[in-house]
């Protein structure tokens, strides 16, 4: 089976300061990979390098494209990479305001990707937008409201709808539940789990919340100081941590 995404020797530093170093892994279709680690461990740097938002210093990201088979997205041309970024990939930001156009209505936000790939039929676009608002449990009556009038949880769900409307195969998520209160988090996780299963999405989720990866991720990578210190099946890593840092991380979680 061809991996959907194959990452080799991903390295990025900021001057003398190390972002991430020599990270390699494969992601198979339909698989959800969690990346955990403390703040500053390089997990967001890694995610941004994978998604093409940052240029890595070294390494390759081989993505199994729909049209042309496995291609290195680091060396492909920028128009191709940006095209991937708005069709076959999705990126969910921690703060919804980074991923949404706050001055544009919910319907316009969901429709933007469709218009970007050439849909020029207003009725179609609106139909898709209503369908997707329904799927992320936002009342269709809010379609013409701006995201600034939405609650934090609704904004995050709108961001997910906006990203998934083109039917991507790979979703990058940077702390998707950060900054939400626990009941809203639970609802969002439920929704994400449903979407990932229904659409057969592959996903890479960066978080420092172990509960999120326990629920969503099939496999887990633990990062510290820019390096992967442990990886394996999520339940194995969380129930039987081998590396000292992972043991510390797991034991730091409060049991209520």
């Amino acid at each position: 089976m061809t991996p959907l995404l194959s990452v080799q020797g991903m390295t990025r530093s900021y001057g003398n300061h190390l972002g991430c170093s020599d990270v390699s892994f494969d992601l198979y279709p339909g698989e959800v990979m969690g990346i955990v680690g403390e703040s500053g461990s390089g997990k967001s740097t890694l995610l941004n390098c994978l998604a093409g938002h940052l240029t890595p210093d070294a390494g390759s990201v081989i993505y199994d494209t729909r049209g042309h088979g496995p291609r290195d997205t680091v060396t492909m041309s920028e128009p191709e990479r940006r095209m991937l970024g708005r069709t076959d990939w999705a990126f969910v930001h921690q703060r919804a305001s980074d991923g949404l156009r706050m001055g544009v209505s919910a319907g316009g936000n969901v429709g933007e990707r469709l218009m970007a790939i050439g849909n020029r039929h207003y009725g179609d676009i609106r139909g898709h937008a209503i369908d997707w608002l329904d799927r992320v449990e936002i009342d269709a009556g809010r379609i013409d409201d701006r995201p600034v009038t939405f609650s934090g949880g609704m904004q995050q769900r709108l961001q997910i709808a906006r990203n998934l409307v083109t039917g991507p195969r790979l979703v990058f998520m940077d702390e998707p539940t950060g900054g939400l209160d626990v009941s809203v988090q639970a609802r969002l996780l439920d929704l994400l789990r449903g979407l990932v299963r229904d659409m057969g999405l592959s996903a890479i989720i960066v978080t420092h919340d172990l509960a999120v990866v326990r629920l969503l991720a099939d496999r887990l990578m633990v990062m510290k100081s820019g390096r992967v210190v442990e990886h394996g099946l999520t339940d194995r890593v969380l129930d039987d941590p081998q590396h000292a840092y992972t043991q510390l991380l797991v034991s730091s979680v409060l049991q209520v």
Partner: peptide, 11 residues
Amino acid sequence: EYGLMHVKLYE
């Protein structure tokens, strides 16, 4: 990349 221009017309 002119999808955004149509977002304005959509609005």
